[in-house]
């Protein structure tokens, strides 16, 4: 089992290594608007990655209490939004503000579970974060009765792929292959007999049919 995990991770690393110039750390401060006393945003937790390449996050978040839930319910009543402000820091940049949101109603329905996707450029900078509600199999009306609720966040890194270049190499290969084939001799024709000679067969067939129609067989009269 352990072996498999190692293989899995090494594959993961290899895959990401293509997209990423060099590895670095990533630290995301997560703030939200719920239960804040004076400021507009207050801390919800943080997500930190030691290595963007491996993409394994350490998520450290507060638990929601009744105050949070009540405020969230108030927002959900008017179909408002639950906004998340994230301050992204990397080795290169510090506290880049990125904001994302979900509908408060859907967030409550999902049992406070969300998916955060961070899009990372090849040089390790985050350009956008998308916050989405996880699809859960739980019933839609979850009752919030206890005093503490655990946030269930999932974090993914997505890479902005280097775009492909015009595919000159394979085209040149194709041309060379064709050239070789021509030098070796005619391309081997592996079409069927009909496909090859239909242009001769069809006129003959038509000619036969016409001549057949021109002289009706006397057999028809014999039948009478």
């Amino acid at each position: 089992m352990k072996m498999f995990t190692i293989i899995f991770f090494s594959i993961n690393v290899l895959q990401n290594a293509i997209c990423l110039d060099y590895d670095g750390w990533l630290n995301i401060k997560v703030e939200h608007t719920l239960n804040c006393k004076y400021e507009e945003y207050c801390a919800r937790g943080s997500i930190s990655l030691k290595s963007i390449r491996t993409g394994i996050p350490v998520i450290d978040q507060i638990n929601f209490n009744d105050g949070h839930i009540n405020e969230l319910k108030e927002i959900a009543k008017v179909d408002g939004i639950y906004a998340l402000r994230t301050l992204v820091s990397t080795a290169e940049s510090k506290d880049v503000e990125i904001i994302s949101f979900v509908r408060a109603k859907r967030f409550l329905e999902s049992g406070l579970s969300d998916i955060i996707r961070a899009w990372v450029l090849p040089n390790g900078e985050v350009i956008a974060l998308s916050l989405q509600v996880a699809n859960t199999s739980q019933p839609k009306n979850i009752e919030y009765k206890s005093s503490e609720y655990k946030l269930n966040s999932t974090f993914y890194i997505r890479h902005v792929d280097p775009a492909p270049l015009p595919d000159t190499a394979s085209y040149i290969q194709k041309l060379e292959r064709e050239k070789e084939a021509r030098e070796k001799g005619e391309l081997k024709d592996n079409r069927s007999f009909l496909a090859k000679y239909w242009m001769y067969i069809v006129p003959i067939a038509i000619f036969v049919m016409i001549s057949g129609a021109a002289n009706p067989e006397p057999a028809a009269q014999a039948a009478r």
Binding site: D21, R117, P122, A128
Partner: peptide, 25 residues
Amino acid sequence: LYKEEVVAVALDVVSGALAGAAAHR
């Protein structure tokens, strides 16, 4: 590292979610 770079981003402007992106070095 690579001087100029072009990043094409297809963004859902309602939700702010990124649908697709590509970087040209």
